[in-house]
Design a protein around this nucleic acid. Structure first.
Length: 207
DNA sequence: CCCTGATTCGC
DNA sequence: GCGAATCAGG
């Protein structure tokens, strides 16, 4: 007669630890899809965590890595910070083995709520002509004509809006500035570094 | 200090 | 698999 030997695996311990917690949040397919969509749209991990609810930004980042989603890459030297491929010295409880971070492509990160508020204030304060603002995803954008690629001309704003993989993807299509592929609003977004917008927003917040 | 993403490792 | 802790960097 053979005895069945119980082997406690990592999965068993995880299941036990998870099932005994009442507030245990699991990554359902729906939440994973939402995570993928928001990450692709360029939202930060903390923003995604806030939208999903019940998870921290670390949880979001961890999930992103486990899903092997593309990381963020700096664009124009103003977007996502990058990390040195090697850590100079190991901290107290860390081994000195750090693999180089794989470089990968990623969409531009969208501005955070504070940035959006600051930009909206700027627009409302400086706009000499009436302009209708609308919210698309996490961005506040001017009234767009929602043109498709083939509808763009020399005089239309070519700022992309939405997820290129989704049906609702379109271009702003507003009247472009002279010599710019973008309208007055998106030209600012395209050429003003995110950090400067953030600094301006913080200065306003502090009074 | 605020924020960001990246990584490790105990669970 | 999960995510807190901890890192580097803007």
């Amino acid at each position: 007669m053979r005895r069945i030997i119980f082997v406690a695996t990592v999965s068993d311990s995880v299941f036990y630890a998870c099932s005994r917690r009442r507030d245990c949040m699991n990554w359902t397919d729906e939440r994973v899809e939402k995570l993928k969509r928001l990450w692709a749209e360029g939202l930060s991990a903390s923003q995604i965590a806030a939208q999903l609810g019940g998870v921290s930004r670390n949880a979001v980042i961890g999930k992103v890595h486990r899903l092997n989603l593309p990381g963020r890459v700096k664009a124009g030297g103003t977007a996502t910070p990058t990390r040195a491929p090697k850590r100079p010295a190991a901290p107290q409880q860390r081994p000195a083995s750090f693999a180089a971070r794989p470089a990968s492509q990623a969409p531009l990160r969208q501005p955070r709520p504070a940035d959006i508020a600051a930009m909206q204030d700027e627009i409302e304060a400086s706009a000499s002509e009436p302009r209708i603002l609308e919210t698309v995803g996490n961005s506040v954008v001017p009234m767009a004509r929602r043109l498709t690629l083939t509808e763009l001309t020399e005089r239309t704003c070519k700022w992309p809006v939405g997820d290129p993989l989704k049906d609702d993807f379109h271009f702003c299509g507003a009247e472009a500035c002279d010599g710019s592929p973008y309208c007055k609003y998106h030209a600012r977004m395209a050429y003003q570094p995110v950090n400067e917008r953030r600094r301006a927003a913080n200065a306003v917040a502090r009074g």
